[in-house]
Amino acid sequence: MSKRLTAFYWMTVPAVVLFFVFMTLPALQGIYYSFTNWNGFGKHYDFIGFRNYANLFTDSNVGNAYLFTFKFAIVVTILINVLSLLIALGLNARIKARNFFRGIYFLPNILSVLIVGYIFNYLFSNVFTIWGQNLGIHAFSTNILGNENLAWIGVVIVAVWQGIAFNTILYLAGLQTIPASLYEASNLDGASRWQEFWRITFPLISPFFTINMVLAMKNSLMVFDQIVALTNGGPGRATQSISHLIYIGGFQGGEFAYQSANSVIYLIVIAIISILQLKFLQGRESDM
């Protein structure tokens, strides 16, 4: 082995050590504690086997959190990909100052999620309600974040607004890989814009569509910051996501071991959904 290759291997050691200390080791500790009744304080606890895992399937709070998270993730994933693809198609067209607009659309991605959430919390609570009252629009005259049936829509709006930015950039990268000669040939054949999209554009950017769908679904299933900034899981538990339930129950409710078991199930669910998405969407890529 050459000295240069050896140096490259040694350069990876700090990264591997840091990843193990801050990622792998805490995950293994969480799995270990999930088989105990530890409340997060003190050194005394007992091993109780799979009791925590069994109790998860009969806990109504856990069930409600999973239902909300799945509903939220599906809606957000669809909206983010549809809107970001439409924006990317528009930005990829020959419009003036398109680089300026690309920067504007990417701006939400570099902002802190918590800061954006608190800003929208103020807008929903004060600005939008005043506009609704002045314009006589009843739907906007009250804060939707305080409505048990509508609060989740406010969280969706914020998540979609910020999530569109990254997906738009990926779609733009995919659109730029398509040769212009294909569109010129389709124009000569008299193809419509709709036919161009389904026969040329979408099949050629399908790998980017796969990545965007998986990333959007994964990020939506892990929603936490928006919940904390906008509703803190309320009203009641109407907008409590799985991540928020694990945090509140584990660090504030004395359920450290119980929520550790919940986090293990949560990890398995996200991994299964991501794998199924990849297999299904990549299978569609090969059919196009």
Score class of each variant (00 low, 15 high):
L67M: 11
S112K: 14
Y32C: 08
F106G: 00
V75N: 09
I268T: 04
V228D: 14
H244I: 08
S181P: 03
G49S: 05
I273R: 01
G250A: 14
Q29Y: 10
L25Q: 11
M1L: 02
G63Q: 14
S84P: 15
I119F: 10
Y171G: 01
S141V: 06
Y105V: 12
N81W: 05
Q133F: 03
L276A: 06
Y66T: 02
A54L: 15
F8C: 00
P108G: 01
T201H: 01
Y122T: 05
K96V: 08
G163M: 02
A261H: 07
D59L: 12
I246F: 10
L91S: 08
I246C: 10
L150G: 02
Q282R: 13
L135A: 15
G154M: 01
Q133H: 08
G90C: 10
S84G: 12
D225K: 14
G40L: 03
A159L: 07
D225R: 13
D59R: 14
Y258R: 07
A27K: 07
D287N: 12
V17E: 02
Y266V: 02
V160E: 03
F128D: 13
A165V: 00
T58W: 12
A7L: 04
P179E: 00
T231K: 11
F197Y: 01
R193I: 00
D225W: 05
N262E: 02
L85S: 14
S286L: 11
R237E: 13
V21L: 15
Y33C: 09
F57Y: 08
T24N: 12
L267M: 04
V156G: 05
Q176D: 03
Y53I: 10
S141H: 09
M11W: 03
I227S: 03
I211F: 14
D189S: 01
M1I: 09
V82Y: 07
D59H: 09
F251W: 15
I74Q: 04
V75A: 07
L150V: 07
F72D: 04
Y53P: 15
I227Q: 09
G154S: 09
V158H: 12
V13A: 06
L145D: 15
L107C: 04
Y247G: 11
G249V: 08
P14M: 00
L182S: 03
K96A: 10
Y33F: 13
L89D: 05
I164H: 03
A139W: 04
D59C: 12
R94F: 14
L28A: 15
F20N: 07
S125Y: 11
P203R: 14
A180L: 09
N219Y: 07
D46Q: 13
L150K: 05
Q195A: 04
Y9S: 06
F128Y: 14
N64A: 15
A191W: 07
V113G: 02
W131A: 14
D287C: 04
V223F: 05
Y118C: 14
D189Q: 03
R94T: 13
G42A: 06
P179D: 00
